[in-house]
Simulated assay, not measured.
Amino acid sequence: MEYGLLLDPYIAESDDPHSRFTGLLASGVEKRSPRTQMTAAHLTVMCSDPNVYAGKL
Rank of each mutant, 00 (worst) to 15 (best):
L43E: 12
L7H: 02
V29D: 00
T44N: 15
P50S: 12
P34C: 06
H42W: 01
P9T: 02
A41G: 07
S48N: 13
S48P: 01
A41P: 00
T39D: 12
Y10G: 03
R20I: 05
P50N: 08
R20F: 04
V45M: 04
P17G: 03
L25V: 12
S27W: 03
T39E: 04
L43Q: 06
R32H: 07
D15P: 00
G28L: 06
A40F: 08
V29I: 15
V45A: 10
Q37P: 06
A40P: 05
A41K: 12
S14D: 03
E30R: 15
S48C: 08
F21K: 11
H18N: 07
V29P: 00
R32T: 12
S19P: 01
D49L: 06
V29R: 06
V45W: 06
A12H: 13
L25F: 07
D49M: 12
H18E: 10
M46F: 09
G23N: 09
M38A: 12
N51A: 13
R32Y: 03
D8S: 12
T39H: 14
F21E: 10
M46S: 07
E13C: 02
G23Q: 15
I11W: 14
P50T: 14
H42Y: 11
T39V: 14
G23W: 14
P50I: 05
A26Q: 14
S33P: 04
V29N: 03
S14T: 15
S33I: 04
E13Y: 05
M46C: 00
P9R: 04
F21A: 13
